[in-house]
Amino acid sequence: MKLTDFKFEIEGLNIPDTPLEKRDKARLMVLNRAEKTIEHKEFADIHEYINEGDVVIYNNTKVFPARLNGKKEKTDADIEVFLLRELMPENMLWDVLVEPARKIRIGNKLYFGEGDDELMAEVVDNTTSRGRTIRFLYDGPNQDLYDILDRLGKMPLPPYIEREPVEEDKERYQTIFATERGAVAAPTAAMHFTPELVKKIEKKGAEFLPITLHIGWGTFRTVEVEDLTKHRMDSDNYFVSAETSEKINKALKSKKNKVIAIGSSAVRAIETSVMASGMSKPGTGWTDKFIYPPYDFKITEALVTNFHRPESTLLMLSAAFGGYDFVMEAYEEAKEKDYRLFSFGDAMLII
């Protein structure tokens, strides 16, 4: 398939920049692949499609406030640093994007905050035109560093959202499953779940199982090649526990229970953790798995996902799972029925 197969106009579409106050009141479009039917529901109705013995895979990554405003040494010039990923926790090394990049060179020291919250970093390498590697000059434990970032940083909202992040975004750009800090983008399909909805599903005998995939800024990176076979995904760190893997395999072997993935990040993690037998294996590492049509899914049997931006790798993954023609038809229907789209929008369940 080609990049332009996933192009559509977004002008005039319903694209919110905040989530609904009641998360499970979002709309839910249900796509049945076997029957080629489309239903329109409320997200709280998703329990109707989840049964006893099913396993629901969620990403427990937590978005941290990755945007830091600070000053450059000597000149006192204003700078912004966007923390992309932690490279070597023991050495406080991070990959970052910097602005204005032309003024930030190897050896420069950067200052953030003031008083007890003052944080200093040194630029140790150039990675790309805007990319740098920095070392925080901080003597405390990593946990304390993250606490300082929580106080000093701003949330990394999706780049198409033009408003500035506010303090409330530290809560509302998270899922109820968020426990493991390390992401710079939220697994937004899971943002529709509430504690009450999870309990309702669990009472039916289904089980929620965690994986961790720290979503990087590459999830928003523009695909720049028409031939999708030439696109390379950024790598994201993931972890699948032995317990999650074991219970996934039990559901797969049962033939009657489904493995339901919440969001593309959960899919990428579990489809990375596949043995030659087609079963899941526990593990940790980095994945650059790029899923686009056609793709032979080994583990994922149902998918909860949002409506994604045109020409995005997230849309391509949805089309690979639901079928290109069927998913693009569903997007046309979503536009006609004024569904809320993208990160803070409504959801789709593909079964």
Rank of each mutant, 00 (worst) to 15 (best):
K2N: 13
L3K: 12
F6C: 13
F6M: 15
F8K: 04
N14S: 14
P16L: 12
E21Q: 12
K25W: 05
R33F: 01
K36I: 00
K36M: 09
K36N: 14
F43K: 02
F43L: 00
A44V: 08
I46C: 09
E48Q: 03
Y49S: 01
I50Q: 06
G53L: 09
F64T: 04
F64P: 05
F64K: 00
R67F: 06
L68F: 05
G70T: 02
E73S: 14
T75F: 06
E80K: 07
V81C: 08
F82Y: 04
F82A: 04
E86Y: 04
E90N: 13
M92L: 02
W94A: 10
V98A: 09
R105H: 13
I106T: 12
G107N: 11
G107M: 04
N108D: 14
Y111C: 01
G113V: 06
E114D: 15
D116P: 06
A121N: 11
T127I: 15
S129V: 14
R135P: 09
F136R: 01
D144R: 13
Y146L: 11
D147R: 15
R151F: 06
R151Y: 08
M155S: 01
I161W: 11
I161P: 07
E162R: 15
V166P: 11
D169Q: 01
D169A: 14
K170R: 00
R172D: 13
T175E: 10
F177W: 00
R181M: 11
A186F: 02
A189G: 02
A190V: 00
A190I: 03
E196R: 14
L197G: 06
V198R: 13
E207N: 12
I211D: 11
W217K: 02
W217L: 07
T219E: 03
E224A: 04
V225M: 12
L228W: 04
T229I: 05
K230R: 14
R232L: 14
M233T: 14
M233D: 02
S235Y: 02
D236K: 01
V240Y: 10
S245K: 06
E246S: 12
K247I: 04
N249R: 10
A251Q: 03
K253V: 01
K258C: 11
A261R: 08
A261P: 12
E271N: 11
E271S: 10
T272C: 01
V274N: 10
M279L: 15
S280W: 05
W286L: 15
D288P: 03
F290T: 00
P293N: 07
P293Q: 01
P293T: 05
P293S: 00
E301L: 05
E301N: 13
A302M: 01
A302S: 13
N306S: 06
F307E: 00
R309D: 08
R309I: 15
P310M: 06
E311Q: 14
S312E: 07
A319K: 11
G322Q: 04
G322I: 00
M328H: 02
Y331E: 05
K335H: 12
D338T: 10
D338S: 15
F342Y: 12
S343I: 08
A347R: 08
I351F: 14
